[in-house]
């Protein structure tokens, strides 16, 4: 359990800095910045402390906003997704939602993909809604949400495959 906490702290710092200084400055096709820092919330143990996750999600978003001079959209989106994660896990994994590392192994591929895509899509929808916050920009919100979600999804999926323990 102790080494798990250590890994979590390491992940938190690594993903935060990777996001703030590299991924947020990528601008694929002019507007796509994949938000890989969501991986922290995605791979947090499914049987872990949910209250702690909410606080960590808030801090992650807050630090990211402070480092990237963001307006506060990341804070709200990451906080909300940390709060919603148990419900999304229950919805996508069904009875298997208590497997500690269910998002990596021990569950169906379709369930894993559903979990991953739902988390990412909801996060991006909230993020861009908060950033634009206007009905006139609804097309921009949807466009950004869709394309950035696809990019983040691909990056997150391949990173998870890459760092999976092989036996």
């Amino acid at each position: 359990m102790n080494s798990d906490n250590l890994v979590s702290v390491f992940q938190f710092i690594l993903l935060l800095f990777l996001q703030a200084f590299l991924l947020s400055n990528m601008n694929f096709f002019g507007f796509i910045n994949p938000n890989l820092y969501l991986l922290f919330i995605i791979v947090y143990r499914l049987d872990g402390n949910t209250t702690l996750l909410i606080i960590l999600g808030f801090l992650l978003g807050l630090f990211l906003d402070l480092l990237t001079q963001g307006s506060g959209g990341h804070t709200i989106a990451t906080l909300t997704i940390a709060y919603l994660r148990p419900y999304i896990a229950k919805f996508s994994f069904g009875v298997n939602n208590d497997i500690p590392m269910g998002m990596l192994k021990g569950s169906l591929l379709s369930q894993r993909l559903l979990y991953l895509s739902m988390l990412i899509f909801v996060h991006h929808l909230i993020l861009f809604t908060v950033i634009y916050l206007s009905f006139d920009n609804i097309i921009t919100i949807i466009k950004n949400t869709f394309f950035t979600s696809v990019f983040t999804f691909l990056m997150a999926y391949f990173s998870m495959e890459l760092f999976k323990e092989k036996k």
Binding site: I54, I55, F58, G61, L62, D65, S71, G72, G73, T75, I76, L79, T80, V130
Partner: peptide
Amino acid sequence: GLLALSLVFL
């Protein structure tokens, strides 16, 4: 609580 805090931040 944290949501209210982040709205203030925003």
